[in-house]
Structures are given as structure tokens and as C-alpha cells.
Nucleic acid binder design. Structure first.
Length: 898
RNA sequence: GGGCGAAUAGCUCAGUUGGUUCAGAGCGCCUGCCUUACACGCAGGAAGUCGGGGGUUCGAAUCCCUCUUCGCCCACCA
């Protein structure tokens, strides 16, 4: 048996964490444990980008998942935490494009097949990095079920879904203005084009009439788009418009003539009342263009440079971009056009303006609205079943304040642009016959047309990454096949993720779950907070304010990292960490782990060689302290369990902390020390109670700090080979052990000890000095308690002795809340004036408190209106305070104070 | 322009259905201690008009209104 003295005085996480994790893996502790009566509990990981590296957001999010999984695992659920990665279309393609750019190449130099192979090579090499990093923070995922959204089986699911939606006519080709990233060269969904307020300018531009000297003035933030204008509109009720409606104006620079039309979509309050209409480069202008049958010329190319690029020309194919502007970048073009306008005297004025502009969520470029053909999913039919279920309360979002946001989005859902002009991703399975133009979606790759046998072409585009991740809860389990995993682990239970992907991912998973599985994919959505620095800025690589979770693991241990993340923020609240002071940020967790380690260093030599069941201990040998700590242990079990069930991980953590440190270590261990050496029945009882309490602490804390608890639990007596805390049962609540009277009695002992310590500190008594003290109990019951706990009081208050005869002593006084009096003999050291002041201050405080309470109880309004139990409680309180107060007053009188 | 959240000790945050030993914790600070589990510790202590103002109530950090500051989400006002 390893002697506990072998434990170093300080816990070193580095020496144990790796080994413990390997042990868990080798023993298959992460796999679901099947058995009679075991109900599944399933969490699917939000799959991180396959090129990603672990950041604090992952740390927070995955620690929460791990806590929940470990909690439910120990409660006997058949837990599955399913891990994996996302191929992350745009993000990954960008990473590899940057790589080959260093070789001076673009993806077009390589060609599609070679480029895709290059990405695969990169993914094969680095794709498991982030999953390996998750292991370092203790994530107990079932790695045997790791999935990747481009796995062949997963790809099959994506394709099946696409074809089904096609067959249901929920996928359609849309010809409209979409968000286009000129840097990534792809279309984006509405969600992927993030609105950000930026400082821009509003340009007022004159458009001269064709038939006279007059002009009208339009206002725009994007003057370069005037090249693509095909109308000017004004509200029909706007008096400023009347002279112009039906006339034609000349576009500056090109002189192209366009009509002035009335359209009631115009906001009369904004700008000049006249709106230039660029149907191919603005979503709302496109709507106007549709209504009015306008031409829609594209005047910008895909890469954001000016140039005629087709569009709907209505037969007018004449160039709209003057030769000298062709090829200019859009922002250069803007400057140039502004100059030209100035030169022609057509620029009326320029105003500064802060306005929302869409940015690419991957590269942050300003998104260009652009008319194009894309594939869309019709979302309303998919949203309805989710909304029904949600309104029935069958899906819970915590914290619930997100409900409104979620509902608002779902109720106003818009169709989803799913095609991306990328190479990395799931190729869109739409085929077109070049001969008969038949177009269809297919589960298999085809080379000939099923209708006419002609040659076919597959759509060149790939699907939005989220079109694969929305299937994650069932595609990972083998769908569309009817697999045992799918039957067993769908639907899952808790989904833990960041609020920023509520729409991208969570809402769509719900829709896919209903549509393809007929059931919601999970019951609770837990939305985490955001990890920020002390200036409340989001941690990010670009700001350089991040903390590398692996640095923290290296410096302080995974448990310390988890501790800070879990204890540091409540449900859904942001977690603020200080990148400039890791020590202060993570020391509490490290210190706590070390405390546990040292409790073990003390305990282990004193525990029975075999596990002694508490039930075998003669209850008569249990002391007050024994019964107290057992009662507190059960309280901790009950409260921690409840807190975890309500996702209040921070509360559970704090309660366990208080029990382990504030109750078990600070009080029980201290009271029990002398008994342990005796080797008698009392010692046996003490060690059994210690073992029970300690075992309980380790089980309760394991989900939060799995490494230190597993390490220490392994050292407990009675462990058989193969026993692991990770799979050991959660403490079963034994509420019969909760004993309010015991807690009150021991509470009085604690109060007496604290009062004496307090006096010692106040009178600066050296710790080496042993004083005599006396306690005059408030009644026979209290007297019994103090007498039986005499030794404890003497030791913990560092006294020479304590008697029941307070009258015999001169010294410093204190009155406990039950009215018992404590006297500490301090003959020479006592300054009567100071003592009087000290006690009368206390009396004043009590009197004030009592006055308030008495007034309240005398208030007819209160006694008649407040609930009876509240009134009764207040009366009891008054009684107790009065006892305490009277005792104190008596003491003051006895001392002859003022 | 809408909607939401936050504002409590120097710092980071708890405080669940409104009830005076709930004004708390950790870190930091002050005092004294290396008391053979732990100085990553022990004992004791100072510190907050619970953002401002108004209201409801017998009673409010807790409910309502309003203002201020910060943050987030949504939105086709060019």
C-alpha cells in the first residue's frame, strides 16, 4: 500500500493528468455504459472547424458539456458525448489558399481536383489537432464515434437530405440579389453576412433631366453603383416628385437615360426623397426592378472590380461601364467616380454617416450585393413544426432570455441560400443534361441523362457548410440507415453552444431533426456566455487578448482551467478573464486542487485499511461533530445535485467548495485529529465518517475537477483494480442524515470557538499563550453540548482550559446568539474601557436590530398582511435576539460599564 | 430604428419565487501566525447609501417607471 507520506506537499497536475486520461481511455470509460434501467443521455459536440485550434470559447463550452456528461454518467445514465469536426468550407479553403499563396499560387493554378486533394492532405495532417487539445482539458467524449462532416457516410446523409428536399420542392433555384464576398468569391447566406456599423459617407448626386435644365438629386452611400441604375423612384405622395414622375433623367458620367417612377416603397423622410435604383446590386432595388420590369445590369465583376458582367439587360447589351473605369477596384472606383462627379458639378454634397454594412463572416470583407443564380431552401415549411413544438414548451432554451430572439428569427425566417462558389465541400448533386436540358438531383453521380441519354454536367458549386452541420445530431449516428446507434441515441438531450450560432446551427438542427427524423434532436439548448478580457472585449487572435487554454493547462492544470471557467460565471453569463494576470485568474482553481491534495495527505494515513461502511458503525460512538459533518455532507449532495439539474454549474461548484474547504477541512478535520490516534471505537467511527465525507466530496467534485478527484479517489482504501471514479455512482441522497438540531448545536460550538479566537486577535494574545476560558451556557441543553465538546473548544481556540463557571473569571466577554456567555481570562491585559466599548458596540448593534424587528412586529399592517409563517419566524427571531441582548446587557452591568 | 442583457466591496462575480444576523464569495488589502495536511496555508480584520431619480408595498439589491453608462442581437431607410 502506498504510504500517503509519499505524496509531495504540493499537487503537480502535470504528473498525473496525462496518465489518468490514458487510463480512462484504455478502460473505455467514455463509451456509453449499457445496462438494465440505463436511459441514454446524449450530447453532440458543436463540431469545431477542422483547422481550428482550441481557444477559451471552446474551453468554456466543452467544459460545460463535460461537467454535464460526467454528472449524468455517474448518475447511471448511458451517456454518449459524440465528438467530431466540421469541414468548415470557406474557413478551411481560405487557410489552404493562404498556404499555397506562399508558394505564389492560387487555387486556379492548381485546378479543382489538385486543390481539393491539397486540402484533404492538410486536413489529414492537422485535422485532429483540436480534438487532441480537447483531451488535454479532460473532455470525456466517446472518441470511437468521432465524425467528420466530409466522411463518406456523412456525405451520403447530406446528399440524401438534398435529394429529398429537392423532391419535396423545398430546394429551388433563385434568381435574385444575394450577398457576395468579392474576396472569398462566393455567395453567402443572410446569416453569414454580418451587419456592422461603420462610418461611411452619404453622397448627394444630381441627375439632370433629359428635357430641360432641371435636375433631381439622389442620395447614396455607394456612388459607384450609379453605373447600374435603371430608374429613379420617388414616393407617389411626395410633392417633390410630382414635376419629375414620368420624365427621364440622364445618369452622370455615362449619360444613359433612365425613367423617374413613382413607387410607394420609398421613405419620404430619407435623403432627398429620390432613390436611385440599381436592381442588380441592391436587394431592395431588385424588388423594385422586378415590380417595374426594369433592366438589371451587373456593372461589377465577381472580384469586386468594375466591368460589365451581364445581368438582365432586357435586350440592351450596351456597355454601362466606361472604358476608363473598367477593372478598377470598387473602392478605387468610388473615389474616381466622386471626382468625376465633382468635375461635372453633379456632386451636391457629402455627409458623414454611420450605417450598417454587411461583412463577410470569414474574411471581414465588405459584402457586395449581387444578382445571381443560387440554390435556396424554402424554410417556412421546415420552421413550422419547430415553432409548434417550441410553443408547446417541449424545447427549452437556457437562459430563457434567448427565447424572444429565437422566436423572432424563426417566425420571420427567410429562405436559405445554400450554394457556395467554393471547391472545398459537398458538391451540389444537381445534374443537367446538356442535350435536353433536363435538370434533377441525384443520390448517385450520373454521366448520362435518364431521359434522353445525353451527356450531363454536375453543378459546379458546393453546399454551405451549415447544410451539413444541421444534420449533425443524426447524420453522426448513421442516418439514413436505421442503425442501432440512431435508434438508441436519437434524440439527444442537451445542446451546449455559443449564442452566435443559434441561427446558423441550432435553429437549423431543430428543423432538420423534425423534418427528417420526425422528432426534435434535443430537449434543452444551453447557450453559454462569451469569454472576454477585463475590458469586456471578446477574446480574439486579432486583438491579441486571448489566453491559450493549453498554456493554462501547462501552468496550473486542466482542473484549474475548468474551475475558473465554471465557478467564474453563472448560467449563460460572460466569463471575464485577465490575459495579463494568469496567476490571479487561475490560482483559485489551482489552490483548491492543492487543498484537496493536502486534505488527502492528512486523511489517508488515518483511514481504515478497508472501506468501512458507515452503517456498520455503532451510532452511539458518533460524536456531535461526526453527525454534523454527515448532515452537512447530505446537504451538499442535495444542493449540488439540484444545482446541476438546473444547469447551475457555478452554484454546484461553490457549494462543493464550501463543503470541502469550509466545513470538512476547516472544521471537521480539525475536530477529529486527536480522536484518530486513539485506536478505539471513537477512532473507528471518526475514520469511517472521514472516509464517507471524503468519498462524497470527491464524487461531487469529479465533474468539475476530474483529474485531481480521480487521482485521490484511487488512493482510498477499498479500491479494487479497475475501480474508477469517473464511472463510480453519484452519491445517493440520504436526507435522513440531515439534522437541523445537530447543525444548531455544532453551530453553537463553532460560535464559541470563533468568539474566543476573535477576542484573542483583538487583544493581540500570542498564539503560544494558553488562556483559560469559561462558558456560561444559556440552558441545560447548551450546557451539555459545551461540556461534551470541551476538548474541541480548548484545542481549536488554543486555550488552556474551559469551564462552565464564568463567574470565576475576569476578562474579555462575548455573548453567543443563544444567549450563552463566553469569558476569556485576560486579567492583566484587559482595559476595562476597551472592553466596555467593545461590548456596548455589540449591544448597540443588537438593539438597533431589535428595534427594527420590534417595530415591525408591532405594526398591525405587517402582522395582518404578511404570511403567518413569516410572522411566526420573525417572532422567534425576536425572542432569540432578546435573549442574546439581555445577556449582553447583564454582562455590561456586571462589568460596571457606563 | 427595434429587442435584450448588464450596472452589488479595489478587481471578477453570486444573491432562485420581495421579509433585517443576506448585504455574500474568491482575488487583492491590513494584523498575527511556518499550530508536524496545506504559506497555493491558518486565525482575525477593514471595505459596498446594492448606477441616479421616482413609484408600488407593512417591508425592495430583489417588482414597476424613468434617466445614465456599457455590451449583445435583429433591421432593405438608399
Amino acid at each position: 500500500m502506498p504510504g500517503p507520506t509519499e505524496l509531495a506537499p504540493q499537487y503537480n497536475p502535470q504528473t498525473v493528468e496525462g496518465g489518468l486520461y490514458r487510463t480512462w481511455m484504455e478502460r473505455g470509460a467514455f463509451a456509453p455504459t449499457t445496462g438494465p434501467g440505463r436511459e441514454p443521455y446524449v450530447i453532440v459536440i458543436p463540431p469545431p472547424n477542422v483547422t481550428g485550434v482550441l481557444h477559451m470559447g471552446h474551453g468554456l463550452n466543452n467544459t460545460i458539456q463535460d461537467v454535464l456528461i460526467r454528472f449524468e454518467r455517474s448518475r447511471g445514465r448511458e451517456t454518449l458525448w459524440l465528438p467530431g469536426t466540421d469541414h468548415a468550407g470557406i474557413a478551411t479553403q481560405n487557410v489552404v489558399e493562404r498556404l499555397i499563396a506562399k508558394e505564389g499560387k492560387t487555387r486556379f493554378d492548381l485546378g479543382r481536383p489538385a486543390f481539393v486533394e491539397r486540402v484533404w492532405a492538410f486536413v489529414r495532417e492537422t485535422g485532429s489537432t483540436i480534438l487532441e487539445q480537447l483531451k488535454q482539458i479532460g473532455a470525456s467524449c466517446d472518441w470511437s464515434r468521432t465524425r467528420f462532416t466530409l466522411d463518406p457516410a456523412y456525405t451520403r446523409a447530406v446528399r440524401e437530405v438534398f435529394v429529398r428536399l429537392w423532391e419535396e420542392r423545398l430546394i429551388y433555384r433563385g434568381h435574385r440579389v444575394i450577398h457576395w464576398c468579392p474576396r472569398c468569391l462566393t455567395a453567402l447566406s443572410d446569416e453569414e453576412a454580418e451587419s456592422k456599423d461603420i462610418e461611411g459617407k452619404l453622397y448627394y448626386i444630381h441627375y439632370p433631366l433629359t428635357d430641360g435644365p432641371d435636375h433631381l438629386t439622389v442620395a447614396t452611400t455607394r456612388p459607384e453603383t450609379l453605373l447600374g441604375d435603371t430608374a429613379v423612384v420617388v414616393h407617389p405622395d411626395d410633392p417633390r416628385g410630382a414635376p419629375f414622375i414620368g420624365k427621364r433623367v440622364k445618369l452622370p458620367i455615362t449619360g444613359i437615360e433612365i425613367p423617374v417612377l413613382a413607387d410607394d416603397s420609398v421613405d419620404k423622410e430619407f435623403g432627398t426623397g429620390f432613390v436611385k435604383v440599381t436592381p442588380a446590386h441592391d436587394a431592395s432595388d431588385f424588388e423594385i426592378g422586378l415590380r417595374r420590369g426594369l433592366a438589371m445590369p451587373l456593372i461589377m465583376r465577381e472580384n469586386g472590380t468594375l466591368g460589365d458582367d451581364g445581368g438582365d439587360r432586357k435586350g440592351d447589351a450596351a456597355p454601362r461601364v466606361p472604358a476608363e473605369l473598367v477593372g478598377l477596384d470598387r473602392f478605387e472606383a468610388r473615389k474616381k467616380i466622386v471626382k468625376l462627379l465633382e468635375a461635372q458639378g453633379l456632386l451636391a454634397k457629402v455627409e458623414s454617416r454611420i450605417h450598417a454594412v454587411r461583412h463577410c463572416y470569414r474574411c471581414d470583407s465588405i459584402v457586395e450585393p449581387r444578382l445571381s443564380d443560387q440554390w435556396f431552401v424554402k424554410m417556412k415549411p421546415l420552421a413550422e413544426p419547430v415553432l409548434d413544438c417550441y410553443r408547446r414548451g417541449e424545447i427549452t432554451i437556457v437562459p430563457e432570455r434567448w427565447n424572444a430572439t429565437f422566436l423572432n428569427w424563426m417566425e420571420n425566417i427567410r429562405d436559405w441560400n445554400i450554394s457556395r462558389q467554393l471547391w472545398w465541400g459537398h458538391r451540389i448533386p444537381i445534374f443537367t443534361c446538356t442535350k435536353c436540358k433536363h435538370e434533377w438531383a441525384d443520390r448517385e453521380d450520373r454521366t448520362t441523362c435518364p431521359k434522353c441519354g445525353g451527356p450531363v454536367e454536375q453543378d459546379a458549386d458546393v453546399l454551405d457548410t451549415w447544410f451539413s452541420s444541421w444534420l449533425w445530431p443524426f447524420a453522426t449516428l448513421g442516418w439514413p440507415d436505421d442503425t442501432p446507434d440512431l435508434r438508441r441515441y436519437y434524440p439527444g438531450h442537451t445542446l451546449v453552444t455559443a449564442p452566435e450560432i443559434l441561427f446558423f446551427w441550432v435553429a437549423r438542427m431543430l428543423m432538420a431533426g423534425f423534418h427528417f427524423m420526425g422528432k426534435k434532436p434535443f430537449t434543452t439548448v444551453y447557450l453559454t456566455g462569451t469569454v472576454r478580457d477585463t475590458q469586456h472585449r471578446r477574446m480574439s487572435k486579432s486583438l491579441g487578448n486571448g489566453i491559450d487554454p493549453l498554456d493554462v493547462v501547462r501552468l496550473y492544470g486542466a482542473d484549474a482551467l475548468r474551475w475558473t471557467l465554471i465557478a467564474g460565471g453563472s448560467l449563460g453569463a460572460d466569463v471575464i478573464l485577465d490575459p495579463d494576470d494568469l496567476e490571479t485568474t487561475f490560482a483559485p482553481g489551482r489552490n483548491f486542487a492543492n487543498k484537496l491534495w493536502n486534505i488527502a495527505r492528512f486523511l489517508l494515513p488515518h483511514l481504515p485499511a478497508e472501506a468501512v461502511r458507515l452503517e456498520t458503525i455503532d451510532p452511539g460512538t458518533l460524536t456531535l461533530a461526526d453527525r454534523w459533518i454527515l448532515s452537512r455532507a447530505e446537504g451538499a449532495v442535495a444542493e449540488a445535485t439540484k444545482a446541476l439539474e438546473q444547469f447551475r454549474l457555478d452554484e454546484a461548484t461553490k457549494r462543493c467548495f464550501e463543503f470541502a474547504w469550509g466545513e470538512l477541512a476547516d472544521w471537521y478535520v480539525e475536530t477529529v485529529k486527536p480522536r484518530l490516534a486513539a485506536g478505539d471505537a471513537s477512532a473507528r467511527a471518526a475514520s469511517a465518517v472521514l472516509l464517507h465525507s471524503w468519498d462524497t466530496v470527491l464524487r461531487l467534485l469529479h465533474p468539475i475537477v476530474p483529474f485531481i478527484t480521480e487521482e485521490l479517489w484511487q488512493k482510498l482504501p477499498g479500491r479494487r483494480p479497475g475501480d474508477l471514479l469517473i464511472t463510480a455512482p453519484w452519491p445517493s441522497p440520504e436526507t435522513r442524515r440531515i439534522d437541523a438540531r445537530v447543525e444548531a448545536e455544532f453551530g453553537a460550538v463553532q460560535q464559541a470557538i470563533t468568539a474566543i479566537r476573535n477576542i484573542r486577535a483583538e487583544y493581540r494574545v500570542s498564539p503560544k499563550t494558553r488562556l483559560a476560558a469559561a462558558i456560561r451556557a444559556s440552558g441545560p441543553a447548551a450546557r451539555g453540548v459545551f461540556e461534551s465538546e470541551r476538548e474541541t473548544i480548548v484545542r481549536l481556540a488554543q486555550l488552556e482550559s474551559v469551564t462552565s463557571d464564568g463567574a470565576a473569571l475576569q476578562g474579555a466577554h462575548a455573548v453567543l446568539s443563544d444567549g450563552s456567555e463566553v469569558v476569556v481570562a485576560l486579567t492583566g491585559a484587559i482595559d476595562l474601557g476597551q472592553e466596555c466599548r467593545r461590548l456596548s458596540d455589540e449591544l448597540t448593534r443588537l438593539d438597533k436590530q431589535l428595534d427594527g424587528l420590534a417595530a415591525k412586529l408591532a405594526n398591525e399592517q405587517f402582522t395582518s398582511r404578511a404570511p403567518a409563517d413569516v410572522v411566526a419566524k420573525e417572532r422567534q427571531k425576536e425572542q432569540a435576539w432578546r435573549t442574546q441582548r439581555d445577556a449582553l446587557a447583564g454582562k455590561l452591568a456586571a462589568l460596571g460599564c457606563g
